[in-house]
Amino acid sequence: MPFFKSIFQAFQKYARSIGMVILSAMLPILSSTGITVLLLYFENELLLWSFWQWLLLYLGVSLLMGFALMPTTLMAFLTGYFLGLEATPLMVVSYLIAAYIGYNLGLFLEGKNLHKNLLEKPKVHRFLSSLKEKSWRLIILVRLSPVLPFAVTNLVFSTIRFPMKTFLIGSLLGMLPRTLFAIYIGTKAKTLRSLLENKDTVDFPYSEIIVILLTIITVFGVGRMVRNSLKVANESENL
């Protein structure tokens, strides 16, 4: 009973943070349905857009991704389909703006308070300090994964309080391979509908293998760092 009571008390204390994580994971999935309908309806018009119209759209999309209202991978697919690999810089800048917004949104909503509460526990403090020492590798590995929700990882990083410069550069280096891959898949799509329904990946038979490989690299890399940081925290506690 004491064990379950402690779990319940912890859940109560961090209920808002848990709710934010769940909402951040669900919002992009739910909103993508509406975005898909709009894209299919306006596909012909979008194909005729000028550079400046696209630039304004990317600025708007940066806000949507930053506030967890649009999946980043979906935008990378669309970049490839409508504009090709030449538009990669637009996607990269949009991604960085979204990461900056998401990080600061996490700080504003809960990150500062949650970080302060976590630091009150010496063992957790040592664990987070150890993770911070591996900040570059951790951020790059997390961003490398095509399956980890962008908005959720922003919240986690804001809680750990990585330096903004490290966070942005690490995010850029980590997201670039999977973003280029998604954009390339978009360039291979014959129609927008087939792209959105994931039917065009058959033209690139190694797409599933690449996704699985990136995910495995992330899981093993992050898992190893977390285990090492837990070991450091436990060893310090026993001194």
Rank of each mutant, 00 (worst) to 15 (best):
M1T: 08
P2T: 03
K5N: 15
A10G: 03
A10K: 12
Q12R: 15
Q12A: 07
K13L: 09
A15R: 09
L23G: 03
L27P: 08
T33R: 11
G34E: 10
L39R: 04
L39S: 00
N44F: 04
E45N: 04
E45H: 12
L57P: 07
L63T: 10
G66F: 05
L69T: 03
T72I: 09
Y81H: 07
F82Q: 00
G84Q: 04
A87C: 02
T88M: 15
V92G: 06
G102M: 01
E110A: 15
K112M: 08
L114N: 09
S135T: 10
I139W: 03
I140G: 04
R143A: 14
S145K: 08
V147T: 11
F150S: 08
V156Y: 06
V156N: 02
R161N: 08
L168R: 05
S171D: 05
T179K: 00
I185Q: 00
K188H: 06
L192T: 07
R193S: 13
L196C: 09
E197Y: 12
T201Q: 13
T201G: 04
V202W: 10
P205Q: 04
S207P: 01
I210W: 10
V211Q: 07
I212M: 12
L213P: 06
T215N: 05
I217T: 10
V219K: 10
F220I: 15
L230S: 12
A233Y: 02
